[in-house]
């Protein structure tokens, strides 16, 4: 079955992104298709490559990147939410005159329309948040 996921909370602060990750991984292991994982609200912080968690803790950002690589996942970060919270890719950094970008491998920044499209295209949409 084709599933869509929305993640509305940042990593570490709230369990939502862990739950979303564990759910996504289980769904993929069962052979389901993940149409898209959409990161919104503070969820956009799952995509910053600048996180440095202690070595004895999980690396939530890398974990998403690796899952994306392994399963060719579409990890989409909402542009409007990302701009508010200082999460930029190269294009957005340039467009907004910022001197750095911080998006991790496997994520892409795009519009909110991608969430609506995920709702339309997926057979089920599951929201993880606070």
């Amino acid at each position: 079955m084709k599933l869509g996921i929305m993640v509305s909370e940042g990593p570490y602060q709230h369990q939502a992104s862990d739950s979303a990750y564990n759910f996504t991984k289980a769904a993929l292991e069962k052979g389901h298709e993940i149409f898209r994982v959409f990161f919104y609200h503070d969820g956009v912080n799952n995509a910053t490559r600048l996180t440095v968690p202690p070595q004895d803790d999980r690396n939530i950002v890398n974990r998403w990147s690796e899952l994306a690589k392994q399963y060719d996942l579409d990890l989409v970060v909402c542009i409007a939410a990302a701009q508010r919270r200082g999460l930029l890719d190269e294009n957005e950094a340039k467009r907004n005159g910022k001197d750095a970008n911080n998006i991790a491998e496997g994520f892409r920044i795009s519009g909110l329309g991608q969430l609506i499209e995920a709702g339309i295209q997926s057979e089920r949409l599951v929201v993880f948040g606070d």
Binding site: I79, A80, Q83, G111, L112, G113
Partner: peptide
Amino acid sequence: FAGLPKPTGCV
């Protein structure tokens, strides 16, 4: 020109 906020480029 109208002095409104920049669109986020959202859709």
